[in-house]
Amino acid sequence: MESNGYRLLLPEGTLDYFIISDVKESNTEIVIYLEEKNEVPEEHSKMKVESKGFYDPVVVQDFPVRGKKLFLNIRRRRWIVKEEGRYVSRNWKLIAEGSRMTQEFASFLKELY
């Protein structure tokens, strides 16, 4: 799948943490599917963690492009701390402070957390 051009439609810094897994385009809309990279969050890097898939996807409507609605279908990853049996995810509050993401996108991700 050629998704290289679609990266230009994403908020700045998005591809630091997500990959484009799919894109579906119709006459009226574009849906960009994003999956969080399988990179253990820094705050959990010293623990033994294992990726356990994703939370349910969240769909966000972004600004229209050339008369088409633009949607971001976002799948956030979760990890399990093996010693404790508890699930953890990336702390988007920490990311937003030092990120290159737009404040709008970082605020949205913080709301999910």
Score class of each variant (00 low, 15 high):
Q61N: 14
E12C: 10
E111M: 11
K82C: 13
T28R: 07
V23P: 01
L9Y: 06
F108A: 08
F108E: 00
R78W: 07
R7V: 13
V31L: 12
E104P: 05
S21T: 15
Y6K: 04
I74H: 03
G5Y: 11
E25F: 06
V31Y: 08
R7N: 13
E2G: 00
P64N: 10
P41Q: 07
N27E: 15
R75E: 15
E111A: 12
E29Q: 13
M101S: 07
L94N: 09
L109P: 01
Y87I: 06
M1I: 10
A106Q: 05
R90C: 07
A96N: 00
E2T: 06
L112M: 14
R90V: 11
L10I: 14
K37M: 13
Y17I: 05
I80R: 03
N91W: 00
P41H: 07
K52N: 15
V59W: 02
V59F: 08
E104R: 10
G13Q: 07
N4F: 00
K24H: 12
I20F: 01
G53P: 07
N27C: 10
F18M: 01
T28H: 03
V40G: 02
F71I: 10
L109H: 08
E2R: 05
I19L: 12
G85W: 00
E111D: 13
E2D: 15
D62A: 02
V65I: 15
K69I: 09
K52V: 14
Y55S: 03
E84A: 10
G98N: 08
F63A: 02
L72Y: 09
V81A: 04
V58Y: 01
W79P: 03
L94V: 02
D22M: 02
H44Q: 14
Y6A: 08
R77I: 06
G13N: 04
G13V: 04
I80Q: 09
M47H: 11
Q103H: 12
S26E: 15
Y55C: 07
T28M: 01
F63H: 00
P11V: 06
S89M: 12
F63N: 06
E97T: 12
M47G: 05
T28C: 05
V81K: 07
L34T: 07
E97I: 09
Y17F: 14
F54D: 10
V81S: 01
N27S: 14
V88I: 14
E83Q: 11
Y55R: 01
K37Q: 15
K68H: 14
I20N: 03
A106V: 06
E36K: 00
S45H: 03
N91M: 04
K69F: 09
E42N: 00
D22T: 05
R78Q: 12
K93F: 13
I80V: 15
E2V: 05
E84M: 10
E29P: 00
M1Q: 13
E12D: 15
V59K: 13
K37F: 01
